Simulated scan of single mutants.
Amino acid sequence: MDKVTRLASEKGVVLFSKSSCCMCYAVKILFQELGVTPMVHELDQDPEGWEMEKALMRLGCNGPVPAIFIGGKLVGSTNEVMSLHLSRGLMPMLKPYQTLC
């Protein structure tokens, strides 16, 4: 749990992902199109990935990936991020972390 909370707060936008997950890929593309470069942690490529998956579930993630943190706070998974984006609530959260004008 400590590793997940530490990693989640190391950068403004953090994505816990699996390299083979299509929903993770969709979130990565969305952030790219919005001018945000998240810190991505591929759980299937980390020796402690299984423990981090369990920690993410304990934090309230419906599924272990994708798990998106903005400003150190858990936003949720694909559904939450897409809902925020469609309701125009995502951009204000991402504004401080955009790399494009």
Rank of each mutant, 00 (worst) to 15 (best):
K73Q: 12
G72N: 12
Q32G: 09
P38V: 04
A67E: 05
C21M: 11
W50D: 12
E10P: 00
Y97K: 13
E48K: 03
K95D: 01
A67S: 10
L59R: 15
L34P: 01
T5S: 09
L84V: 10
H41L: 07
G71C: 10
F31V: 02
G89P: 13
L34W: 01
R6F: 15
V27Y: 00
K18S: 06
A26S: 11
P38I: 03
F16S: 05
K18M: 10
G63V: 14
S19L: 00
G72Y: 01
E48P: 02
S83V: 09
K54P: 04
E33N: 05
A55P: 08
V27I: 15
K18P: 06
S83D: 13
M23N: 08
Y25N: 04
C21D: 07
A8H: 03
Y97C: 05
Y25W: 07
G60C: 02
T37K: 06
K28D: 05
I70G: 06
R6E: 13
C101I: 10
M52E: 05
D2S: 12
N79D: 14
G89L: 07
L84Y: 15
M93R: 14
E53H: 08
L15A: 08
R88Y: 09
C61R: 08
L100A: 15
M57F: 05
G35F: 02
L30P: 02
Q45C: 01
G76A: 15
D44E: 06
L56C: 08
K28V: 13
F31H: 06
L90I: 14
F16N: 06
E80L: 14
L59E: 11
L84S: 12
Y25I: 03
G49E: 02
F16M: 09
L15Q: 10
R58Y: 02
P66S: 12
C24Q: 06
I68F: 03
Y97H: 15
N62R: 11
K54T: 12
L34E: 07
D2P: 01
K54F: 01
E51I: 11
C24E: 07
M1S: 14
V40F: 01
K3G: 04
G63C: 07
M23K: 04
C101N: 11
G60R: 05
P47I: 04
E51T: 10
T78H: 02
H41D: 00
R6Q: 14
P66T: 14
G60I: 06
E10Y: 01
T5E: 07
V40E: 08
K28F: 03
P38M: 07
Y97S: 10
S19R: 01
V4M: 00
E48V: 05
K28Y: 02
P47K: 06
A67I: 09
V65P: 09
P64V: 03
Q32W: 02
E42G: 02
M23T: 00
L43Y: 14
P47W: 01
M52P: 04
C24K: 03
G72V: 11
G71R: 04
T99C: 11
K54W: 05
P66D: 14
V13W: 00
L7V: 03
V40A: 00
G12K: 02
A8K: 12
C22R: 02
P66L: 15
L34N: 08
S77C: 13
M57G: 03
M82Q: 11
V14E: 02
K18Y: 01
M39S: 04
